[in-house]
Every structure is written in structure tokens, then in C-alpha cells.
Amino acid sequence: MTWLENNSDWVVELTIQHLFLALAAIVASVVLAVAVGRVAYVRPRVRQPILAAASVVYAIPALPLLIVIPLVLGVPLRSPTTLVVALTLYGTALLVGTVVDAFSTVDAGVRDSAVAMGYGRQALFWRVELPLSVPVLLSGIRVVTVSTVGLVTIGALVGISSLGTLLTDGFQRGITSEILIGVLMTMALALALDGALVALGRLLTRWQPRRRRRARTPLGSTEVIV
């Protein structure tokens, strides 16, 4: 592990760059997927086309996508924007189906009672549907997070620095420990973000255990929890 001793500063620097690239793409994917998925859920007629488009995007190999995006957007090849846009496309494609499923899990009775209580469309979305779809949504976001953190590495092939740089540099120099550190740090970052999401999920769904607890007690089982 001589390499690690000599290059620890660089590893830290690349980890931070990797983290920011991944976070930007993950956040953009979630926002975009919720918006698109919402449309697909509300209008069943466009649902199939949207889901089909999502699988088309997911089927595009990453390397050509990195070359085509700059041609389309007019940004330099090695600009972080290129990578973030590419990863956002993949992330959105991966997540959109889950978003539709997530909204479908919201109980129709709950939705009806909210409408009866006078919730408008906006309030219904922000205060009822979105919070209640968090558990399913979160499972999808976790998959996107882990896959995005892994995919950031391919940016190294076109000169966008991240932990992926350790993979290509280690390969060129024939330093196996450098590649290994790159792989392990990428995995650690993915699992750390995944853990953070699980914690965030607990925070956002404190209503859930309460619901289960009540559901288990015979008397409370018929109670409707909003």
C-alpha cells in the first residue's frame, strides 16, 4: 500500500469530486423522474410511451452518450456537465417506473378522504401523495444512487476526474493497489450514500411504524391513518 501512503491527498480530492458529480446527477434524476413519473401516473395514455422511452435511454451505451451530449449541448467534452447530464438521463430512466409504482401504492381511500377534507390538487400532491409514496420511491432512489456512484467512474475515459481516474491511471501504470483503492472507495461511497438514504427514509416515514403498530393491535386495525 505504498501507493496509498504517497497519494492519500489525491484520493481525498478525487473522492470529493466523485461525490459532487454523483450528488448532482442523483438529485437531478430524482426531481426529473418524480415530475415525469407523475405525468405518466396521472395520464395513463402517455404512461406506456414514457416507460418505453425510459428503456430506450437505459439501453444506450455510456461511452457514445458521453461523446454525443457535447455535440448536442455545445459544452466541452471534458466538462462535468457532460457527465452529469448523461448520468441524469440514466438515473431518470431507471427511476421513472418506480415513481409510477410509488404513486400507485397510495391508498385510494386516503386520497378520497383528503379530497373530502378540502385538499386541492397541489396540496394533495405535496402533503398526501408525495409523502405517502416515500417508502417505494426511496427503494428506487437507493438503486439509482448506488448505480450512479458506480457510473461516475466512466467519466475518466473522457478526462472527467473522479475516483474513476484511479482506475485508468492505475491501469496505465500497472499499479494494482491504485485500481483496488479506486474500486473500494467507489463502493464505500455508494454504500455510505445508501446508508444516508435509509436514515433519511426513517426520518421521513415516522408515520409508518406507528401505522404498523396500530394495525397489529386488533382494535386499531380498522383505523385510517392519514
Binding site: 458529480l21 448532482a24 430524482v30 408525495l130 408515520w207 392519514v226
Partner: peptide, 26 residues
């Protein structure tokens, strides 16, 4: 639910801010 929703919004906004700061040094 409204407070939960608020938290979602706040968390997302925080993440966005984080991410946009991130693009700077890059």
C-alpha cells in the same frame, strides 16, 4: 403530512444547494 412534505422539500433543496456548490470547484 404537511410537515413531512415540508421536510421532503427542505431536504431536496438542501441537496440541490449542495450539488450546485459542488459544480463550482469542478
Amino acid at each position: 403530512p404537511s410537515r413531512t412534505a415540508l421536510r421532503v422539500v427542505v431536504a431536496t433543496a438542501a441537496a440541490l444547494v449542495l450539488a450546485s456548490c459542488g459544480s463550482d470547484p469542478l
